[in-house]
Amino acid sequence: MIRMEHVTKRFGPNAAVDDVCIDIARGDSVALWGSNGAGKTTLIRCALGLFAFGGKILVGGHDVLRDGKRARSLIGYVPQELGLYDDLRLSEAVRFFSRLKGLRTPELDAVLGGVGLTGHEHKRIRELSGGMKQRLALAIAMLGDPPVLILDEVTASLDACGRQEFVALLERLSGSGRTMLFASHRLEEVVALATRVVVLASGSVQRSQETGAFAASFGAGTIVHLMIPPAARERAMTGLRAEGFAPTLNGVGVLVPVHAERKAAPFRILAEAGVPVEDFELLRDDRAGLMPSQEKESGR
């Protein structure tokens, strides 16, 4: 569905994206993983045909540079932050973008209800919270039920609560045969949404692997094994996920892969969530993996 061939984008002497080849089949959901400056956003903008680049990107068989309008008509796009006229009412925004997408006037209740914005249609965009704005952006992206959804660090500007809600919303959307490409540096998003993870560093593809394998490799270094009473385990899982950890359950408690320097973080989170920790142990994790924090910050 999305096919990137030798995509290269330079800003001055620096290559923000360097010879990237990714092939995403219909129904696949691919996460772009990498630190800030790894080239995730640039690659996504290339895929939208927002600027010229070397190589080729096809969306649904249409070249995004030569036939950008056709290609983009297949894409629903949610940016990091919705930049729209502040004065616009939600109803107007929905109507405007429906028209640009060539749709008949949509049913506002259905569109806004789907993202939990029922009853807000007369509000202006500036009156919305960050989370509501992102949900509106998602509703706009989903207008016309596009086969491809491209998300660019959509939760980056949200607080923990908003993030959780938003990811839950996306989870409901994925797995319906839609092709998804999204940039993220939050493990729980990747785990929840992606079928495959492409790790980018300094604009190049470092590796590409199944989400399971990626998540397993993520915590290279240390695993904190927390003994938690069964009743509180679900709460612990949610709380840790919300903070970007990828906990797994075992018979006695929760296994949390952590950075070597952040071993205490799960304790704080659980204490705040009121989850009792009965005991813990530190395990060494031998699986090779590349920590996002260990990547070189490539200047873009």
Binding site: S73, L103, E107, V111
Partner: peptide, 21 residues
């Protein structure tokens, strides 16, 4: 699930392919 379905129903059911105005 019902929310998801309603979201899906928001589209007007036309095929998305090549529908640029």
């Amino acid at each position: 699930t019902s929310a998801a379905l309603r979201l899906g129903a928001a589209s007007d059911g036309l095929p998305a392919e090549g529908r640029a105005p």
